[in-house]
Simulated assay, not measured.
Amino acid sequence: MSDIVVSLASPVPVYEQIRAQVAAAVAVGTLTPGDRLPASRDLARDLGIAVGTVQRAYRELEAAGVVVSRRRTGTVVAPVTPADAPAGAGATAPPPAAIVARARTLVAQARAAGLTDDAVLDVVRGALAAPADPPGNAPGNASSVLT
């Protein structure tokens, strides 16, 4: 799990940078249920940050159901139990491989077009916030709310 990179100059708090990177790794299957995360002291040392910062990120991941922490085993990726997962929690089944592949294709195309990673995230957030197309209003139809 040495792929975590933080920017102390970023306006995003360091604990949130860690939380988001771990959650994303779980979402795309880079981290799978049972995988151990580094001990908070080790990760803090490697990143040059305070141990409490890593611990806060781990607490937030645990609260979201992405990881579980145990005394003897440390912090591990939570087992996937979609039936037991509360609505909105992170403990959901990972997306199908085809969805992950499409997301990677989107990222590659966006970068090739010159978009920054932040711009790509803005596009995805915008798509998530947009209402679903009503039946019969598929892309390409003349009907539009915005004129």
Rank of each mutant, 00 (worst) to 15 (best):
I18Q: 05
A98S: 13
P134R: 09
V14W: 07
V12R: 13
P79K: 11
A101H: 12
L146R: 12
D133G: 02
A127H: 05
S144R: 08
T53Q: 08
T105V: 08
A142V: 04
P38F: 14
L146Q: 08
V107P: 04
V67M: 08
G29T: 11
A50L: 09
N137E: 12
V6G: 00
G88P: 07
V124F: 08
V6H: 05
L106A: 12
A57Y: 00
V120Q: 00
G136I: 11
L115M: 00
E62D: 11
A63Q: 13
A108L: 09
I49D: 07
A78W: 03
T30Q: 14
P96F: 10
Q109S: 12
V124D: 02
R36M: 15
A23D: 07
V77R: 01
S10E: 10
R111F: 15
A127S: 04
S10D: 15
V80F: 03
V145W: 04
I49T: 03
L146P: 01
L37K: 06
P38E: 14
T53A: 02
R19M: 12
Y15P: 02
P86Y: 05
A113L: 03
V68M: 08
V67F: 05
G126V: 00
V76R: 10
Q55D: 07
A130I: 03
G52R: 09
L8D: 06
A83Y: 03
A39T: 14
R41F: 11
T32K: 15
A119P: 03
P11A: 03
D117K: 06
S10K: 10
P38I: 12
